[in-house]
Amino acid sequence: DVEPGKFYKGVVTRIEKYGAFINLNEQVRGLLRPRDMISLRAENLNVGDEIIVQAIDVRPEKREIDFKYIP
């Protein structure tokens, strides 16, 4: 289970104008929005990159997770 405030290692699987999709594993995926990329620009991300993200909002009923990148 993903808990708000905890840090996780994930892999960038898709990049859109509104953010990057980060997979923690095959069943868990969330969104890293540009406003939550402190000191990281979306254009510096590539599909396949491994990054550490913090879960900031977890909505299990919608199967949605928002992440924040903190260097």
Rank of each mutant, 00 (worst) to 15 (best):
61 E>Q: 11
29 R>P: 04
65 I>F: 07
24 L>M: 03
37 M>S: 06
20 A>R: 00
28 V>W: 15
30 G>R: 02
51 I>S: 00
47 V>G: 00
71 P>N: 08
59 R>S: 05
50 E>R: 12
58 V>L: 04
26 E>I: 10
47 V>S: 01
65 I>D: 04
57 D>F: 14
15 I>Y: 01
43 E>V: 11
21 F>D: 01
30 G>W: 06
24 L>E: 01
42 A>K: 15
19 G>T: 06
53 V>L: 07
19 G>C: 10
50 E>S: 13
61 E>C: 09
27 Q>K: 14
65 I>T: 02
41 R>D: 10
55 A>C: 15
66 D>Q: 09
58 V>N: 04
50 E>Q: 13
13 T>N: 02
42 A>E: 07
22 I>K: 00
66 D>E: 08
42 A>V: 15
32 L>C: 08
30 G>V: 09
40 L>D: 04
41 R>N: 11
15 I>Q: 01
51 I>Q: 00
12 V>P: 00
44 N>K: 11
55 A>S: 02
16 E>M: 13
68 K>A: 15
51 I>W: 00
31 L>R: 06
62 K>L: 13
25 N>D: 08
52 I>F: 08
58 V>A: 04
63 R>N: 15
64 E>R: 11
47 V>Q: 01
10 G>Q: 00
3 E>F: 12
26 E>L: 11
31 L>M: 08
10 G>R: 00
33 R>F: 05
60 P>V: 10
17 K>F: 10
13 T>W: 06
28 V>L: 14
43 E>W: 13
66 D>T: 13
36 D>K: 03
9 K>R: 13
54 Q>R: 04
11 V>N: 02
24 L>W: 02
48 G>C: 08
62 K>G: 06
61 E>R: 07
46 N>W: 11
16 E>Q: 06
65 I>H: 05
57 D>R: 15
54 Q>I: 11
60 P>L: 09
23 N>D: 10
31 L>V: 07
16 E>I: 07
54 Q>E: 04
17 K>D: 09
4 P>D: 04
28 V>Q: 08
49 D>T: 05
50 E>P: 08
3 E>R: 14
59 R>I: 03
18 Y>L: 06
1 D>H: 14
63 R>Y: 11
49 D>E: 05
35 R>Q: 12
5 G>T: 03
60 P>A: 10
28 V>D: 07
50 E>V: 15
54 Q>N: 03
33 R>L: 09
47 V>Y: 03
10 G>D: 01
61 E>S: 10
41 R>A: 10
8 Y>V: 01
3 E>D: 07
34 P>S: 14
21 F>T: 07
51 I>R: 00
22 I>W: 02
54 Q>G: 01
6 K>V: 07
28 V>M: 07
24 L>C: 07
19 G>I: 08
64 E>W: 15
32 L>I: 07
20 A>Q: 01
69 Y>I: 05
67 F>Y: 02
71 P>W: 09
63 R>E: 10
57 D>T: 12
29 R>G: 14
12 V>Q: 00
64 E>M: 10
58 V>P: 03
70 I>G: 05
52 I>N: 02
53 V>D: 00
57 D>L: 12
42 A>G: 11
53 V>Y: 01
30 G>H: 03
13 T>I: 08
13 T>M: 07
39 S>F: 12
4 P>E: 09
42 A>D: 07
37 M>L: 07
63 R>P: 06
61 E>I: 08
57 D>N: 15
54 Q>P: 01
6 K>Q: 09
57 D>W: 10
33 R>T: 05
31 L>D: 03
25 N>H: 07
67 F>H: 02
38 I>C: 13
13 T>S: 11
12 V>C: 07
5 G>E: 03
1 D>Q: 13
19 G>N: 04
44 N>S: 14
66 D>N: 09
45 L>G: 01
61 E>V: 07
9 K>V: 11
53 V>E: 00
36 D>F: 09
70 I>R: 06
20 A>K: 01
62 K>C: 11
60 P>N: 08
68 K>L: 09
57 D>H: 15
13 T>K: 04
2 V>L: 08
23 N>M: 14
2 V>D: 02
5 G>C: 12
20 A>S: 04
28 V>H: 09
7 F>G: 01
8 Y>T: 01
38 I>A: 13
52 I>T: 10
57 D>P: 02
59 R>M: 03
6 K>C: 13
18 Y>T: 05
8 Y>S: 00
16 E>D: 11
26 E>W: 14
33 R>P: 04
69 Y>C: 08
1 D>E: 13
54 Q>M: 15
11 V>I: 14
68 K>P: 03
1 D>P: 12
23 N>T: 13
58 V>M: 05
26 E>Y: 12
60 P>R: 08
17 K>L: 09
28 V>N: 05
28 V>K: 02
10 G>W: 15
54 Q>K: 08
56 I>Q: 05
5 G>P: 04
12 V>N: 00
13 T>A: 07
69 Y>K: 02
67 F>L: 09
20 A>C: 09
26 E>P: 14
19 G>F: 08
7 F>V: 06
62 K>V: 10
38 I>M: 12
34 P>Y: 15
51 I>M: 04
46 N>S: 14
23 N>K: 13
55 A>E: 01
69 Y>S: 02
34 P>M: 14
17 K>C: 10
57 D>Q: 14
43 E>F: 13
59 R>Y: 05
42 A>N: 10
70 I>H: 09
18 Y>H: 06
63 R>M: 13
8 Y>D: 00
45 L>M: 06
71 P>R: 12
3 E>A: 09
8 Y>H: 01
67 F>E: 03
41 R>G: 12
14 R>L: 07
52 I>H: 04
40 L>M: 10
54 Q>Y: 12
7 F>H: 05
35 R>N: 10
16 E>F: 13
47 V>P: 05
65 I>W: 09
9 K>W: 13
34 P>F: 15
3 E>K: 14
63 R>D: 11
67 F>K: 02
24 L>T: 02
21 F>C: 08
37 M>F: 07
54 Q>D: 00
44 N>T: 13
38 I>Q: 12
26 E>G: 12
35 R>F: 08
34 P>Q: 14
